[in-house]
Design a protein around this nucleic acid. Structure first.
Length: 507
RNA sequence: GCGCCUCUAGCUCAAUGGCAGAGCAACGGACUCUUAAUCCGCAGGUUCUGGGUUCGAAUCCCAGGGGGCGCACCA
């Protein structure tokens, strides 16, 4: 230890033969949280005591010892409360005043207000619940180094304003989403994370290996194909909200593992999905922020339904003044792409070109919320043909602040058509698109048993929570974001069938 | 993967080629109404790592590592 012995040694000195951990109780029963006490007693007069005795627990965050009277600031999950510790009521007073910042304590005493008007608990009983052997960060400046905040979130949560509240908001959002969907007869299901075929999206997957089956498995990139199998199986309204994995870059809006909500509604279509999207997100904003008019990173976001609906072609035209139609000669579309500085690859049809042009010129400029509708069939292998527009599908994405937060379609239900779409993806893969969707024959078999008309919706929960919490980085709403390992370590043993991982021990 | 920025005490930061420092925290002490309490005292360093230039390197150069931002990727 770089610093002199701290509380532990002193406590041990006072009770020879006893260790600190032996003096720590096995359980403790707080009766109140700081937040509740402020709510119930903030209006009492300065200098008065109530006859209410409470027990609280938390970390000591500040300490002000004045000879025979000590003040402490204790923090729990709900906030802070002052501990008022006169020598006359505080057992083991000198031990109490030698507590250090970061120590966990449990305190029982009367609720009172100091002469200066600070709501406090008089320390009539107290017990050490954990000693912090490591020094806590500066009580005023907190922790600002992003790396330290992410790697040591357990400290960040105590000392960074807003860190805890952002994660509490996330938790409440997940809970509200589940309740909202269940109120509408959606049932929550769990489908495999370990996939033989990573389908339902375009992304590079993580690969792992199952030893007993001696087969490679992929972490799912989307739950879509399994959820639609369940609609085939008669679950008319299903949803899954869970982790999804994509082996792509990491930045402010991408973490390799992220949380996706997908839901499917039998007998519904893309229009039902729009209604669900704007109602659900409007509800969340109202519940969590008290309004549908939010500010996200300085920009106004009005989530009051109904949201604007505009086709991709219209939005592109608004932005660059050129009308694109997938029925145009391909050289014309290539020419537009070239004019817009969009990199073109061999094998791209009009639909793929249109999407590229949209993404490079238009998407990031959309403040939203806006439903971007009418996607090219070429880039939507799981969506059903548009009932009016040839070579287009019934699909939308929701854009807010230039970022996609939802994606939905009228689901493709025809097995022959689905097989043909998969074959098209196969050709795209052969042409060099290594994110083209792999063929899933069992999924086609499921469709052959009959999938009724179905609407499906996916929402990126992390980005939604970012918006609701008004934070700039996905790392601010993911508790333990993916980082490079702190030091070059070994893989845990037992990850290989033969138990011999010596060969893996490289730097 | 590329570019820019960054890494100094537990935390937040100084020192820009010339003795590695401050505040808070910690440690020892004084103090019965503090609120980032105050006051006195004491201790704390592989300046991310490894090379190089120099009489002398936290500082300049090269290589590597972590992190942030941007780009690319993410249909």
């Amino acid at each position: 230890m770089a610093h002199p012995p701290r509380t532990e040694a002193r406590l041990r000195a006072q009770r020879p033969g006893a260790t600190v951990s032996e003096s720590i109780p096995y359980r403790f029963e707080p009766t109140h949280h700081a937040g509740e006490l402020h709510e119930a007693h903030d209006d009492i007069e300065a200098g008065t005591e109530t006859d209410t005795v409470v027990t609280v627990a938390g970390r000591l965050m500040l300490r002000r010892v004045q000879g025979k009277l000590a003040f402490g600031t204790m923090q729990d999950q709900t906030g802070r409360i002052q501990l008022f510790a006169p020598v006359s009521t505080t057992p083991r007073f000198s031990e109490f005043t030698s507590l250090t910042i970061g120590d966990w304590v449990g305190v029982t005493g009367v609720v009172m207000k100091t002469r200066k008007g600070e709501l406090s608990i008089r320390v009539d009983e107290w017990v050490l619940l954990a000693h912090s052997e490591r020094q806590f960060p500066d009580k005023w400046h907190g922790m600002t180094d992003p790396e330290a905040r992410y790697r040591q979130r357990y400290v960040d949560l105590w000392v960074s304003d807003g860190a805890r509240s952002a994660f509490l908001l996330r938790s409440r959002a997940l809970s509200l989403i589940r309740r909202w969907l269940e109120d509408r007869q959606f049932i929550e299901v769990e489908t495999p994370l370990l996939n033989v075929i990573p389908g339902g999206g375009h992304a590079r997957p993580f690969v792992t290996h199952h030893n007993a089956l001696d087969t490679d498995l992929y972490l799912r990139i989307a739950p879509e194909l399994f959820l639609k199998r369940l609609v085939v199986g008669g679950f008319e309204r299903v949803f899954e909200m869970g982790r999804t994995f994509r082996n792509e870059g990491i930045d402010r809006v991408h973490n390799p593992e992220f949380t996706m909500l997908e839901l499917y509604q039998a007998y519904g279509d893309v229009n039902d999905m729009m209604a669900i999207t704007e109602e659900l997100i409007g509800y969340l904003a109202t519940e969590l922020r008290g309004t549908t008019k939010l500010t996200w990173q300085g920009q106004e976001v009005d989530l009051t339904p109904p949201w604007r609906r505009a086709s991709m072609a219209d939005l592109i035209e608004e932005r660059i003044g050129v009308r694109i139609d997938v029925r145009m000669p391909i050289d014309d579309v290539r020419h537009i792409a070239f004019d817009q500085g969009v990199k073109v690859e061999q094998g791209w049809g009009q639909g793929k070109l249109m999407l590229e042009i949209y993404e490079k010129t238009t998407e990031s400029s959309l403040q939203g919320p806006v439903f971007v509708t009418d996607y090219p069939k070429e880039v939507s292998p799981l969506a059903r043909d548009h009932r009016e527009l040839p070579d287009m599908v019934e699909r939308f994405e929701v854009i807010v602040g230039g970022r996609e937060i939802a994606n939905a379609f009228s689901e493709l239900t025809d097995p022959k058509e689905q097989k043909a779409r998969f074959d098209g993806q196969l050709r795209a893969r052969a042409a060099g698109d290594d994110e083209a969707m792999p063929v899933d024959d069992d999924y086609v078999r499921a469709l052959e048993y009959g999938l009724p008309p179905t609407g499906g919706l996916g929402i990126g929960i992390d980005r939604l929570v970012m918006m609701l919490a008004d934070v700039a980085s996905i790392r601010d709403i993911v508790l333990f974001p993916t980082l490079r390992p702190e030091s070059a370590g070994r893989a845990p043993s037992g990850t290989h069938a033969d138990g011999d991982d010596e060969a893996d021990d490289e730097a």
